[in-house]
Simulated scan of single mutants.
Amino acid sequence: MAASSPVRSDAELLRVNRGFYEALWAQARLIDPDRFNTWPLLRELAAAAPRRLEVAPGLRPRLPLEDTCFVDLSHAALRQLHARGASAMHGMIGALPCADARFDLVCAFDILEHVADDEGALRELARVAAPGATLLLSVPLHADAWTAFDEFVGHCRRYEPEAIKAKLAAHGFALEGSAIYGMQPKSSRLLDLGQWFLTHRRERAMWWYNHVFMPLGLRFQKPLQWRDGLPEVDGVDEVLLVCRRLGG
């Protein structure tokens, strides 16, 4: 039986996420956006949206480095983004250092599940998105799929499909399309093994992740298959959602 997601405070989540991702990015290199299967869509969207924001990219940005504003909590990630000439600011999704209605394209991959106040995070995304802006958001699905690995990497929750659709609508976002997303292995034994090494042999595990498993994941990732709305997702671990900011 799957474990349920724990109730975790903002302070605890911040500590876990800083501890895990600062160590991860300190030993990693920035991967160019065109290496990911999100690139065909984002290249097209970015060409039509000169005002764009990506929240918490770490060293895996999906939007073009040039002319995109990046906001991240990790100083290790910010240093490498700056070194590549990107415009990057220190900040968190719950208090974005950006003006209202500033962006026509906003991306937040693998972040909403990490914050205790996801309503506040969505309010911030809605605040900085101009009317008609596109939002790309990825989230893990199904509370009954929760594992100890979710907790280990700083997740606060998984989302039921109807619940995330309702949350987006409540903050002025209309869901337009979706695709199955993510690189997490399906084998629970692999996840358990990875968690053990990250707990007891962290430096070595980070090296293997950055130098072996991430390159393999990039090589074997499949093209995204886009669908209207959010159709049947039983057994799907994570989805990428394309939304439109209403208003204007």
Rank of each mutant, 00 (worst) to 15 (best):
F36P: 07
A86T: 05
E113G: 07
R127T: 12
P64W: 03
R35Q: 09
A95N: 11
K186I: 08
F197S: 09
R227V: 10
V106N: 13
P185D: 00
V55A: 04
G58W: 06
G229P: 05
G85H: 08
L198V: 10
S178Q: 06
A77K: 11
L14D: 13
H200W: 12
L218W: 15
W207G: 03
F149A: 02
G248Y: 13
F109R: 06
V128E: 09
A99Q: 09
L73P: 02
A26D: 06
E203M: 13
F103Y: 12
G120A: 09
R43D: 11
H142D: 10
A174E: 15
L122I: 05
A145M: 03
G177F: 10
S74V: 11
E54V: 00
D100T: 15
N37S: 14
Q221R: 09
F197D: 15
F103R: 03
A148G: 15
D104E: 02
D32Y: 04
V55Y: 04
L105Q: 06
R127D: 05
L246C: 05
Y209I: 15
P50M: 03
G94A: 01
D118S: 00
A205F: 03
V212Q: 07
R62K: 13
D32R: 07
M214C: 12
L81H: 05
L45N: 10
R102F: 07
A174P: 07
Q195N: 02
L175W: 12
Y209V: 14
A130V: 12
D150I: 06
R245Y: 03
K186Q: 07
R244H: 13
G248M: 14
H171F: 08
E22Y: 11
A48L: 13
L141F: 13
Q80L: 12
A26E: 14
K165V: 13
G182Y: 09
A174G: 08
P140K: 14
R127N: 09
G217L: 13
R202V: 10
C98Q: 09
D118M: 01
A101D: 08
L198A: 00
L14F: 02
E151Y: 02
Y21K: 01
A11F: 00
V106K: 09
F213H: 15
S4R: 10
A3Q: 15
R219P: 14
I31A: 03
P6N: 04
L24S: 07
Y181N: 15
G154Y: 01
W208F: 15
R60K: 15
E44W: 03
H90G: 03
L246G: 11
R15W: 10
V16L: 04
A116E: 03
L136C: 12
M214F: 15
R244I: 04
A23T: 12
